[in-house]
Structure formats: C-alpha cells, structure tokens
Design a protein around this nucleic acid. Sequence first.
DNA 1: ATGAAAGCGCTAACAA
DNA 2: TTGTTAGCGCTTTCAT
Lengths: 342, 342
Amino acid sequence: MAVTIKDVAERAGVSTKTVSRVMNGELHVRQSVREAVLQIVAELDYRPNIHARGLSSARSYLLAIFFDDPAWSGYAAEMQRGALMRARARHYHLVVEQLDVGVSGWEEDLAASVQGLRLDGAILTPPLCQHPQVLARLEALGLPYVRISPGQEPGRSGLIEIDEAGAARDITRYLIELGHRDIGFVEGIAHHAATPERRKGFLTAMAEAGLAVRDAWMQPGDFTFLGGLHAGEAMLGSDVRPTAIFASNDDMALGLSVAAAKLGLAIPTDVSIAGFDDAPTARIAWPPMTTIRQPVGEMAAAAVDMLVEPGYRAGPVDAGFARRLDHALIVRESTSAPKLEP
Amino acid sequence: MAVTIKDVAERAGVSTKTVSRVMNGELHVRQSVREAVLQIVAELDYRPNIHARGLSSARSYLLAIFFDDPAWSGYAAEMQRGALMRARARHYHLVVEQLDVGVSGWEEDLAASVQGLRLDGAILTPPLCQHPQVLARLEALGLPYVRISPGQEPGRSGLIEIDEAGAARDITRYLIELGHRDIGFVEGIAHHAATPERRKGFLTAMAEAGLAVRDAWMQPGDFTFLGGLHAGEAMLGSDVRPTAIFASNDDMALGLSVAAAKLGLAIPTDVSIAGFDDAPTARIAWPPMTTIRQPVGEMAAAAVDMLVEPGYRAGPVDAGFARRLDHALIVRESTSAPKLEP
DNA sequence: ATGAAAGCGCTAACAA
DNA sequence: TTGTTAGCGCTTTCAT
C-alpha cells in the first residue's frame, strides 16, 4: 500500500503529529527533527493523502477555475495554463469547471463542485465574474473567489485586471500617430465588462486628438471572428471607409482582415487593422496583427496566489486584494501609415 | 455546517449505511426506502463529501486528463470540454494536468497527482499516450488509463481512436476526384502516431489512382502554423507547383494558405488546400477550409466512459476496450477542381 | 517542542 | 434487506 504518515513517524521515531507539523511548515519543531523527518519523507517518497487532509481539516488543497466557455479561445487556454502552473507550484491542485449560466440547473452544478469537492477557492473568468447571481451563490456557499477583469464592484472580492481603457487608448493613439484620422472601432459583446472600457479608451484617444468618430464606424461586435467579418463588411464595403480599424479583440480583427481580403483591400496598405489580447490568432493572421498583449497567464497565476494567501479568506476584502498588471502594445505588420490620397 | 450522511440518515429514520447504499446505487434496498431517502437528500441538498469517500473507499471520483501541452490548440480544448461534460454526467470530477516530459522531474509531478489525489483513472492525450515511460510509470502506480489515438500497442490499455489512415485516404481521394493529379503533402511531427498513418493514407490514395508523388511535394511539418508556412513556401515558390496540397492538420493548412497569399496565389483557383482535424481555425480561415472532422469531444467522452466502467480496472485489457469513432470529410471552399492549363 | 486521543464523513466487512 | 462496528489518514485539541 501507499506510504502513510504513520510509516514516516515510525521510521523517524517521532509522533504522527510531528510529521504533520513538518509537512505543513508549522513552527515549533526543532530544526534537527524537521530535517530528520524530511529525510525520511524523501526516502519513502511520502505524499500526504489529500482526502485525509481534506476530511480532517478545513482545507482541501483544491482550487477551481470556472469558465463560461462558449468560444474556447486562446484566452481561456492561456488562463488555464497560468493557473495550472502556479497551483502546482503552490502544492494545490486545479479543477477546471465549466459553468453555463444560460442553462437552468447551473446552481446545482456549482454547488456540486463547491460542496462535493470542498474547494478552497475559485477563480472566475469573464464574463462569469460579472454575473451577480454567480457571485451571490459563491458567497452563500462561503467560498473565497477571485475575479479576473471584472470591471465592477471592486470591493466585492479580490480581482486581477489590466487597465483596459488605458490599453485601448494606447493602441488608438498609436494609430493616430501613424497619421490616421479616419478610424473605425468594433465593440465587444455587451455584457463583458471590458466592452465599455475599451470603447472608452478609444473615444478618449480620438477626442484628445480632436478627431470625430462617425456613427457608422462604431460597429457592434461579439468577440467572434464572424462578428468581425460582418463589422468589416459594413465599414469597408461603403464608399467612405476608414483607413484604420481597431477591433476590441483579435478574433474580430481577424474577421476584419478577411472582410478586407474579400473586398480586395490590402492590409495595411489600404486599411490598417489592430486587435486586442495578443491571442495566438494574432500571430497566425496574415499579416501578423498589431495588438495589445494582456499577461493572461500571469493574471491567472496572480489569482492563485491571492486565493492561497492566508490573509485572503480572513478579513473583509481591502484594497490590497486588487492587482493591476501591465499590458503592452505589440506592433506587427497589420498597421502602417495611411496611403496618401490620390 | 454542511449536511452529512448522518443528518440524512436521522431524518429518514434509517442507518447511514442505508443512505450510503442509496447514494451509490447499490442493490438490496427496498424501493420505498430508497425513495424516502432520495426525498430527504433532495430536501436537505445533501452531497457526499468526496474526501470522506476517497478516504474510506478505493474510489476518489477523480479523473485526470493529461496534456503534454505546447500548442494549446483547439484540439486540446475540445478534448477537455468533452471529458469535462461526460465526467460531470457520470458524477466524477476532472482534474486537468500538464505533464511536460521534456523537463526533468516530470515523474515527480505525475506521482504527486496520482498519489496525492488518489486518482481513479487518467486520460492520456497525444503525444503523451505514446511515451513508453509515462505508460510504464502509470502502470507502476497502478492507475488505469485510456489513451487517445495512441496508434500503437493496442493491447496495452484501452484506447479511443479514429481511422487516421482511412481519413487521410478519403480526403486525398476527394482531391483526386476533383481532377487534381499534382498533389502535395505536409507531414506532421515525427513522434506523433498520427503522422505515419496520415502519410500512409495519402500515399495509398495516390497509388490507387496511379499518381506519382514528387519528393519535393512531400514536405516535413510540425503541426504548427509556421511549419505550414514554410512547407507552402517551399512547394508553391517553385516553378512546378502542385495544384492541391493536403496538410496533416489545420494549423499547417492555414500556414499553407498564407504562403499562397504571399505568393499571390488565389485559393482555391490557383491551389486547393485541405487540412485535418476541423479545428476552429478551419472555419476562421479564408476561404473556409476543407478538412477531416475528428469527433474530438466524443472521443474524450468515450474515454471517460471507459474509465468509469467497472469492468475496466478489473480484467486484463481485451479487444472490447478499443473504440474507433467515425470521422467525416468536411467540404468547404478551400478546394475546387484545378484550373485548366492555359 | 512534542505527543495522545479524538474525530472528520464515509464505506467495508460483518452480523442480524 | 438493513444495521453495527471499525477503520481509512490526517489534523485538531489538549496535554505534557
């Protein structure tokens, strides 16, 4: 059978409680004893049984990351990856859960995860992290959670974010500096918190430069390739078209570039295109896309760190439990100065 | 505190063992008693503590899916999704683990998951499922596992696959039926089991049709966009170029189409392009790509089913524990009859 | 600084 | 068909 704490205790000539103390890094263990125990642990390749731990103590060493899902974008994948690595480093395990709030019975699924697994904490990705009922349910279940880019209710829980508006402003400014004056914009899906922020950033940069924004050049979108395609056809198919378009994410920017191709417009010669996220698609596109890099993996890792921090469960949430990470403008070949008018 | 089995037993006026029997769907419980217990369970919203279960019995109700990772393709995402949904339906939880066999210490990571979590079973995705030492290690740890598309050692464990060679043959035949005679091929990465199979299917179809295959039109590849781009430049940049190219996966096919675009070749007019997998990229590409659909989600679901089947852990693996699912040819706009020679 | 005893919530083995 | 008893492996509480 597997090695248990008793085996270690016996072999080390101490009580099981002492082994437990060593395993949990508790104080009040003589240095020599600690070392001896650790030695035996290594020899025997002992690993605490997570179920025994979970049963006798409050902690399960299990964290969950919840996805709403729909589009399994590179965004979600990278986030999961970041959380996975950090959880492992912290000696936690990560359970990945999908929560489809569009389907009745999601409350059941949530409770099954939280109570069945006795989770220690949860990471909420957008747009789940903005769903009031999900938050309420988690709070009712007493489960600490951290939101990724929630964009609202800063004090309600810990959160990890980037400066969405600032990033959108940065990339818009970049287009303006290139010489563009006729710039289009494709919005994100309405219920994502990032949507109004990115829109705000765009409008701010335009206003700062004294540039007008045509109604027809503010297109709705849904963060999907197809949404970008439609927006692109609408903006580029008309007689007066923008010389540059900034889409609220890379998938839509890719749709824009396909719309341009269908209309016989070259990128960036005829129209510059910029995206947001630095998803894998941004590098796969042709030409490679100018975009904003979000440190998605790090954001997830930071969320794990916050959840496992002893202070987090405890107190009322204070300002220390909000982290804003840096974004970066990534310039690639989908943008250039506008062609001079003939 | 949380509702326990005792609460349910008390309220239902039975012993905890009876409640346990009902929860586990065991026989030998009177119908009326079963219903009464279920009633209370619903009323109290009782959920068995997975840790208590895992501690007292052999089962943990925890399954893991292992990814090698690197390219977080749509393939991996869809696989995870399929496993997730089915695991939930079977009242199991899914832990997602990344295992990088390129980094020393992976054995530690594996043991930590398997022993620490007391997993009930594991799903191995390619190319992990072909790594002899990973399999050996799992067997040493006594953990039942199911391989996805391993392509070798059929009797070593249960496996889920599609007919890789047959699928590659199908799509090649389709190109031939369109009238193509000069067809190029881009291979997958060498250590994937699918690579020789898809190659074999391609060559079979060509041989059947009595078509020669030029050496220069059999390009190496690595399943990445960039690999496809290079292969495309090599084949399409030369004077004599194929009228159609079949890439071993969609990411590479996308690379091909970008190579074509850079060289001023139109798809499918100048060159037809076909991929494999029906990844999200296949639909995002322009024009949308002809490809082979693998039922990736279903494959993962089938793997879960196999793992939780009581008979699976038990006996030596027999032929019943291999499932071959159906693939499908998906015709989109990246392929057409070749242009007539001028 | 260390240990003994009790118990977390459940199921296995046995008894009735 | 149902219940009783005894743990599973760890942490808690309370001693020492």
